[in-house]
């Protein structure tokens, strides 16, 4: 049995006396595509932030590829291959696309004393950046400040920067949010092309994305795990339907389906 990519053991999170997550345990296998769904306020984003280390868990343990990262700060978790995207694309707005990619590529080369040569003279890094820009179709906008780019491009810059760091476990927080309905099929295709050895945990409201992409689905409700299973099982599950799915599917995807 392989070491799981992600294990949560009895994770709880309390913020200001309010229990956001309660005793969450789940296991994600390497290469698995896991979706986490649930109504607004179920704690999905908080859960991703606890996994990524932006929020400390109040109780419980987080293990990534068998390593206990519960006490590690967010930046150290990147070392074990864990990267996360944001609801609002996590990009540096006043930097150009190229600089955004460079920042990712230069991670680890900033050596705290600032000694590392000049960025613009570092041929190797510049070549790599060029490669990434081309791969993600960002060459045309490489010298545009990211704040001038449309949302879809910003998302692409965000993903390109994260992929430059070769994630092994990728957390996606509502990547389809802000996309127009007709952009969604192409987006699903893009998700499906992610390398198979990469583990993906996806929080998403769009059921089309979730059901066409996920191997397994975890349903959160009021900060606790309500159900866990394959997409078919989840669709059959009456608790889930009652709590969330029916309403969400009607509300969200009726127009697009």
């Amino acid at each position: 049995m392989a070491v799981p990519a992600l294990q949560l053991e009895h994770v709880s999170k309390v913020i200001g006396g309010l229990t956001i997550l309660e005793d969450i345990s789940l296991t994600v296998q390497p290469g698995e595509r896991r979706a986490i769904i649930g109504p607004n306020g179920a704690g999905k984003t908080t859960l991703l932030n606890v996994i990524a280390g932006f929020l400390p868990a109040t109780r419980g343990r987080v293990l990534v590829f068998g390593r206990d990262v519960t006490k590690l700060p967010a930046h150290r978790r990147v070392d074990v291959g864990l990267l996360k995207t944001n609801q609002q694309p996590a990009v540096f707005h006043e930097l150009t696309t190229r600089q955004n990619i460079l920042i990712a590529l230069l991670r680890g080369r900033h050596s705290p004393l600032g000694l590392g040569g000049l960025v613009e003279r570092d041929r190797e890094i510049q070549r790599l950046a060029e490669q990434v820009l081309e791969e993600w179709g960002l060459l045309d906008v490489s010298d545009v400040e990211v704040r001038h780019l449309p949302h879809g491009y910003q998302r692409r810059v965000e993903l390109a920067a994260r992929f430059a760091l070769r994630p092994k476990l990728l957390l996606l927080d509502e990547p389809a949010a802000g996309l127009a309905v007709d952009e969604i099929p192409a987006f699903i295709e893009r998700l499906k092309q992610l390398p198979r050895d990469m583990t993906v945990v996806l929080v998403e409201h769009s059921m089309r994305v979730v059901f066409s992409f996920a191997d397994r689905i975890t349903v959160l409700h009021h900060g606790a795990v309500l159900a866990d299973g394959t997409p078919d099982e989840i669709q059959q599950n009456e608790d889930v339907q009652a709590a969330y799915l029916a309403g969400a599917m009607r509300g969200r995807d009726a127009g697009a389906a």
Partner: peptide, 23 residues
């Protein structure tokens, strides 16, 4: 230097930079 670029990243959004693995 890369350090300088990282500083600008802090100015822009410290949390995003941390998410890219910067201390």
């Amino acid at each position: 230097s890369p350090f300088g670029l990282a500083l600008v990243g802090i100015r822009e959004n410290e949390r995003y930079l941390e998410g890219l693995g910067y201390p």
